[in-house]
Amino acid sequence: MRVLIYLFIGILFGITMFKSEAASWFRIYEMFRFEAFHMYGIIGSGLFLGVVTMQIIKKYNIKSFYGEQIRFQPKEKGISRYLLGGIIFGLGWALAGACPGPMFTLVGAGFSPILIVILFAVLGTYLYGVLKDKLPH
């Protein structure tokens, strides 16, 4: 049952990524040129509702659908890892035109070259794991 719920949420996410054009390389390019409001509207409105939702859940101590306590993991403090990691991610995001969610959506949409991006994203993740202790965090 839970498997079907995860699958359903994933399908909803995939459809949203494709239909919103957030999975389009062109939209990412246009965003970084500040030539359209589209992507800012998506992130901004999603974020606004996200903030409101999380505040309500916290304030009223809302339980999950299964009646469990909802825990929000705070991010570890730090600057270097977020700034440096963020910049590296941003360089790749703009070049490949896809972040780790839409990448998979594009596989389903039939763009086979995105498999190169995914393969190397996995490799990049592995590279980070290997170099982790040598990097400033």
Binding site: R81, G92, L95, A96, P100, A121, G124, L127, Y128
Partner: peptide, 12 residues
């Protein structure tokens, strides 16, 4: 592009 996304995402 993929390499940077994967590396950067985990680093960040």
């Amino acid at each position: 592009g993929g390499l940077l996304v994967g590396f950067g995402a985990r680093y960040a």
